[in-house]
Nucleic acid binder design. Structure first.
Lengths: 160, 160
DNA sequence: TTATAATGTTAGTGTTGTCTAACATTGTTA
DNA sequence: TAACAATGTTAGACAACACTAACATTATAA
């Protein structure tokens, strides 16, 4: 019913992501991953368990419940989309792209996420492996200059 | 010294934005603008005043102090950049673009904001009033199809 | 197998930011 | 000017979320 807080979403996503690599997720893993103390994890996990989103036996492993998986996947999908945009298109470093994606993955609405996906799709379905304009943009970032000649040429031919 | 919370930044930005139109900013204006109760505004303003970011006489107007203006402008600039990206480039509606910009304007780091600005600059300094690829993208959003012909033409000419 | 290290839990604290309700001030109008 | 409406303030409650410190359990190694 009532929406999860960003913090709780973070926990769910973390459980999913850690689980992709480690098979078993422990309180300690979550604490490390999220940069909080184990006691904070305990409180969060307890709360999520009460909502039926995770299961957790005392001193045992933390697992996503059915509903928890759904939510975690949603958020993780958003993360990946944002990462793609920030890294592949905007050309930001992996580190920055990943960090920034984390920060806004909870926040953006469905419409925006869909549009961003469209944008990525638009770029990726280009007949060439990378659209010319995107190469030009990356050139622009590096040098601060537009590769004007190529741009104008393409443009003028196109008008005809 | 210690960074402001998002909430506090929201208050500063709100004071700036309201001040652009109304010349005098009152507690009530802030409450309405931010969708909170006047008592919440009172608490926030008091805290900001203690940090020397705003000035506020009892039952009087709220004004940004020197340092407050600097911060407020920074955030507002981010907001405008994000809005531009979301609306002008991604083609999201004014309402959505504005709302989403609000949500992430505090969050994104300097690198990302700069890169986004670069991207906007790249688009705006295009010799044509709008780059072909962007028109194509907007077409793609509307129809779900790429205007392949135009795209390929431009591309093939360009290789030469 | 027992001592110790690693890990997990619980209780209690502090901060932030919202709220309601009661009260204070200011402005407006009859 | 007196009454009322609009606005602002204060006090107190509550929720979320992190922390520390003390205690409990589990795993490891001497």
């Amino acid at each position: 019913m009532n929406a999860l807080t960003e913090s709780k979403e973070d926990y769910l996503e973390a459980i999913l992501v850690i689980g992709l690599e480690k098979k078993w997720v422990r309180v300690r893993d979550l604490a490390k991953y999220l940069g909080v103390k184990p006691s904070s994890v305990a409180a969060a996990v307890k709360s999520l368990a009460e909502k039926g989103l995770v299961s957790h036996e005392k001193y045992g492993y933390v697992e996503l419940a059915k509903d928890g998986v759904v939510i975690a996947r949603q958020i993780y999908t958003c993360h990946k989309t944002l990462y793609k945009f920030l890294h592949d298109l905007l050309g930001l470093s992996k580190t920055v792209a990943s960090r920034e994606a984390c920060k806004i993955e909870h926040t953006l609405g469905a419409k925006t996420m869909k549009r961003l996906l469209k944008f990525i799709e638009f770029v990726e379905t280009c007949p060439e492996k990378e659209p010319l304009w995107l190469s030009n943009f990356h050139y622009f970032i590096k040098t601060g200059e537009r590769p004007e000649v190529r741009c104008r040429e393409a443009r003028s031919k196109c008008k005809a």
